[in-house]
Amino acid sequence: MALNTPQITPTKKITVRAIGEELPRGDYQRCPQCDMLFSLPEINSHQSAYCPRCQAKIRDGRDWSLTRLAAMAFTMLLLMPFAWGEPLLHIWLLGIRIDANVMQGIWQMTKQGDAITGSMVFFCVIGAPLILVTSIAYLWFGNRLGMNLRPVLLMLERLKEWVMLDIYLVGIGVASIKVQDYAHIQAGVGLFSFVALVILTTVTLSHLNVEELWERFYPQRPATRRDEKLRVCLGCHFTGYPDQRGRCPRCHIPLRLRRRHSLQKCWAALLASIVLLLPANLLPISIIYLNGGRQEDTILSGIMSLASSNIAVAGIVFIASILVPFTKVIVMFTLLLSIHFKCQQGLRTRILLLRMVTWIGRWSMLDLFVISLTMSLINRDQILAFTMGPAAFYFGAAVILTILAVEWLDSRLLWDAHESGNARFDD
């Protein structure tokens, strides 16, 4: 018995066209964080690309023209004298008006014999932002004059995390709450300039795509075929072959399989920071003279006294001054041990922890910024005066060393310790 099946006739004509040209192939790229070699397709503007294995951002879609970056830099340069030299806060102490600005706080630190601690604050609040705007201006002028731009481009990517104007702005709020127990506070004209400078700096850093600047100024022929001998440069993120001198053909720094002496430098910085954190938390970090009496505060006791007036601000200072430094030390110690013992479990967790400490590390400088600003506000000789204690130097040095330890660690070593050939990683 035959089955009668109805015929289905399409209502619209289906047209099949042959592909007349070869589909576009992607360029081969190595991930600078996990060293995976993959094919990167062509990316349009405002599109980002991520590593298929570790999800690290390979290409950032946010990109401004150099002219727009230069305009932002010149605007920031105009704001800087007002943000640093004009009063941020006014207080009335014992019937006398006192003005506080950024430069005055750094000068008070240096004047009291601790120039190293003052230079830490100076670099993060004044030096690094000033280098940022002058570097962008150098790129703008240098591109037109045919100057060598490689050193500036190499420095810009590392400079971003040292620009800490946003953290200093939080420190202004913390210092205001600490001082309000002794005097009446009012915002100064410099505060508005400083807030504007923070906003412009944040926007500029978020749109400063150094890798795209490398592509514009020093374009290189990408690798179009897969080759395990391809290496990625950690300076400019170019994937290719080393030249005859073993250097990256684009930025001219040595092109090595792994960062040289990464573990040794990381261990040295980490152990030194552990040693410095002990006096930083045991010795007094601030000293207040009130009517001839002397009151010393460690980091913890200062947080407890701050909690009596504002528990939320005390929580912020606790996280930045105690929780973050010790968390960074514990995480980095764990990561280094996992590399030495070739741990194969929990790779995803370790990668996330490394990215976390990379982002939060700079916030530990908050305590030094609060001390710097408070020193310029309260300084009335023996009637009422505020000065920093010996722990300030140890704390600042420990924070900087932990930042350097994270920067010096080559994250690809975590993958080397893991089993080879993993296309995915999980716990």
Rank of each mutant, 00 (worst) to 15 (best):
L200F: 15
I172P: 01
H207S: 15
V102C: 05
V102Y: 09
A280S: 03
L37W: 08
P390Q: 08
S376H: 06
A187R: 13
I131C: 04
L93P: 01
H418N: 09
W267I: 06
G421H: 14
L78P: 08
R226T: 08
T9N: 13
F326N: 11
W140N: 04
A269I: 02
L149W: 02
A385Q: 08
I91C: 09
M76D: 03
R259T: 08
R97M: 03
V370D: 00
I14M: 10
E212V: 14
L234H: 13
F194T: 11
N291G: 13
L89F: 08
L354C: 12
Q47P: 04
A73V: 09
L191Q: 06
R256C: 08
L132R: 01
L234W: 12
R62F: 10
L401D: 08
E86W: 02
Y168Q: 09
T201E: 06
I253V: 14
I116V: 09
V189P: 11
I185E: 14
I136R: 02
Q295C: 08
P284R: 04
D381V: 02
P87V: 06
I339D: 09
G188V: 07
D35F: 06
D60F: 11
I287P: 00
E419H: 11
A392N: 05
A183K: 01
L271D: 05
P249E: 05
A280Y: 03
S273F: 01
N281W: 04
M356T: 11
L290A: 02
I106C: 02
H207I: 15
M147T: 05
R30T: 10
S119A: 10
Q295H: 14
N310C: 05
I371Y: 01
A417G: 12
N44E: 09
V133H: 02
R247F: 11
R424Q: 12
V357W: 07
R226H: 13
C248Y: 00
R294I: 03
C251K: 00
K160M: 08
D181R: 00
Q104D: 14
S65D: 05
I172C: 09
A312S: 13
R250Q: 15
A385T: 06
A423Y: 15
P242V: 09
L300V: 04
L234I: 05
M365Y: 03
R158V: 15
I285K: 00
S176T: 07
D99I: 06
K13C: 07
I371L: 12
G105D: 02
S420Y: 10
T239I: 03
A405G: 08
Y241T: 01
Q186A: 15
F238N: 06
H237W: 08
L66S: 14
V370K: 00
E42V: 09
P151D: 04
I339W: 15
A187H: 08
K13F: 08
A223I: 10
Q29L: 10
D114A: 07
C266H: 02
Y218A: 05
T11S: 12
G396T: 02
Q29S: 10
L277C: 07
R424S: 15
T11P: 14
N281S: 10
L323C: 14
R144E: 12
R350E: 12
I43A: 09
T374Q: 00
M1S: 00
T117Y: 01
D114M: 10
E407P: 03
D60N: 09
R260I: 04
R355T: 14
L255C: 07
R30H: 09
M80C: 12
S48A: 15
F123W: 03
T327P: 01
T349I: 14
G95H: 06
T239K: 02
A312E: 12
H90F: 05
T9G: 12
G190W: 00
W359H: 09
G105Y: 02
K13L: 08
T67K: 11
V179N: 02
V210E: 13
S48N: 15
S65V: 10
T224A: 09
H252T: 08
I43R: 13
I316E: 00
M1P: 00
